[in-house]
Lab assay of single mutants.
Amino acid sequence: ETIMEVNLLKGPKGLGFSIAGGIGNQHIPGDNSIYITKIIEGGAAQKDGRLQIGDRLLAVNNTNLQDVRHEEAVASLKNTSDMVYLKVAKP
């Protein structure tokens, strides 16, 4: 597993990826991690090219996303300014 830091500039459609996982909404049984499950065509993440489906999202800005509820992860992604710092684990 490789840890990678990505600074992503939000586009008109936001960050351009979808997530799944978290406490109460496990993407993988027994694993509370938050995973990237979709990269949106023409979105910021696709244009940047570094994020991939299956990457594990560890942090957004200063918010640690390990062992959080799905709703908390979504809220932390929404409550960001235009430049967003992401910390991901690549499988």
Results as ranks from 00 to 15, higher is better:
21 G>Q: 04
77 L>V: 10
79 N>V: 14
58 L>G: 01
62 N>P: 00
48 D>T: 04
82 D>A: 15
82 D>R: 11
70 H>M: 10
67 D>I: 05
54 G>L: 03
7 N>H: 12
7 N>I: 05
38 K>E: 13
38 K>M: 11
60 V>H: 02
78 K>T: 11
20 A>V: 14
36 I>A: 01
88 V>M: 08
64 N>D: 15
56 R>I: 15
18 S>R: 15
17 F>K: 00
40 I>G: 10
67 D>C: 07
65 L>G: 00
49 G>H: 07
30 G>H: 14
8 L>S: 01
68 V>I: 14
42 G>L: 08
65 L>P: 00
26 Q>L: 10
33 S>Y: 07
60 V>F: 04
12 P>G: 10
26 Q>P: 08
60 V>Q: 01
70 H>A: 07
24 G>A: 13
83 M>S: 13
39 I>M: 14
72 E>Y: 12
86 L>T: 02
77 L>S: 01
6 V>S: 02
19 I>V: 14
19 I>T: 08
84 V>I: 13
72 E>H: 11
46 Q>N: 15
20 A>L: 09
57 L>M: 08
27 H>G: 05
14 G>I: 03
56 R>P: 01
25 N>Q: 08
15 L>S: 02
55 D>N: 11
85 Y>R: 10
90 K>T: 08
83 M>W: 12
31 D>E: 13
84 V>H: 03
43 G>P: 00
28 I>T: 14
34 I>Y: 07
38 K>P: 00
42 G>E: 12
87 K>F: 03
38 K>D: 15
82 D>V: 07
45 A>Q: 00
13 K>C: 04
85 Y>M: 13
84 V>W: 03
48 D>A: 07
53 I>A: 11
46 Q>M: 10
31 D>N: 10
40 I>V: 13
73 A>G: 07
87 K>S: 09
2 T>Y: 15
78 K>I: 03
16 G>I: 00
85 Y>V: 13
3 I>F: 06
39 I>H: 01
19 I>L: 12
14 G>R: 03
27 H>W: 07
12 P>F: 03
40 I>A: 13
13 K>E: 13
8 L>F: 14
31 D>F: 03
37 T>G: 05
77 L>H: 01
72 E>A: 14
44 A>F: 05
78 K>F: 11
73 A>D: 00
63 T>F: 08
24 G>T: 12
78 K>H: 15
54 G>M: 09
69 R>A: 10
19 I>Y: 06
76 S>I: 07
78 K>C: 07
6 V>F: 14
32 N>G: 05
39 I>E: 01
55 D>F: 11
42 G>H: 10
19 I>F: 07
69 R>N: 14
18 S>D: 15
12 P>V: 05
25 N>S: 13
70 H>N: 10
64 N>S: 07
79 N>M: 13
8 L>W: 03
29 P>N: 15
33 S>G: 13
51 L>E: 00
41 E>G: 08
91 P>W: 06
16 G>D: 02
22 G>P: 02
4 M>P: 01
86 L>I: 04
48 D>V: 03
37 T>C: 15
29 P>T: 15
88 V>G: 01
37 T>K: 07
74 V>I: 08
43 G>T: 13
62 N>K: 14
34 I>D: 00
10 K>M: 07
69 R>T: 07
27 H>D: 09
51 L>H: 00
87 K>M: 12
47 K>M: 07
35 Y>M: 07
46 Q>F: 15
30 G>V: 03
8 L>P: 00
87 K>R: 06
2 T>L: 11
70 H>K: 07
75 A>K: 12
91 P>T: 11
91 P>R: 03
59 A>C: 14
18 S>M: 15
38 K>G: 14
60 V>M: 09
46 Q>T: 07
23 I>A: 08
69 R>P: 09
86 L>P: 01
42 G>M: 08
37 T>M: 11
17 F>W: 01
52 Q>R: 11
63 T>P: 00
63 T>D: 04
68 V>K: 15
59 A>R: 08
59 A>W: 15
71 E>N: 08
66 Q>H: 04
44 A>H: 13
18 S>T: 11
23 I>L: 10
76 S>P: 02
24 G>K: 14
11 G>L: 05
4 M>C: 09
45 A>C: 15
12 P>W: 08
80 T>K: 12
67 D>N: 13
90 K>M: 12
91 P>E: 12
